[in-house]
């Protein structure tokens, strides 16, 4: 069961404020979802199954070369010095 405290903790580590309405209805909805995925527990834990779908060889990896785009990647809240303004830290 997901308690209100559990929900608040999940919301905190996910950095999401929930509305009154969500705080009200989420515990039940999330419970149902978790109950639904709980059937995964029936699966045996067998470490012999290879979980990897894709592999890359070393040779296929990107060469260490510089290539800079001229595009301005950030266009919001930039100071005259080029810094990005963020929320206060303390």
């Amino acid at each position: 069961m997901i308690s209100k405290e559990d929900l608040e903790h999940l919301a905190q580590i996910s950095r999401i404020n929930l509305t009154e309405n969500e705080l009200e209805k989420f515990p039940k909805q999330l419970d149902k979802t978790i109950e639904y995925i709980d059937i995964l527990e029936e699966l045996a834990s067998d470490d012999s199954v290879n979980l990897d779908l894709q592999e890359l060889t070393f040779e296929e990896l990107r060469m260490d070369e510089i290539s800079m785009s001229d595009d301005k990647q950030l266009n919001k809240n930039i100071t005259e010095d080029g810094f990005l303004r963020g929320p206060k830290m303390k």
Binding site: R15, I16, L30, T33
Partner: peptide
Amino acid sequence: KWDTYFSNVRENFGEEVKRRILI
């Protein structure tokens, strides 16, 4: 403060997105 700021702005996700993030 930054973490409150984060939580506040991320309140803007819709309900289904929030549910999946929480799960």
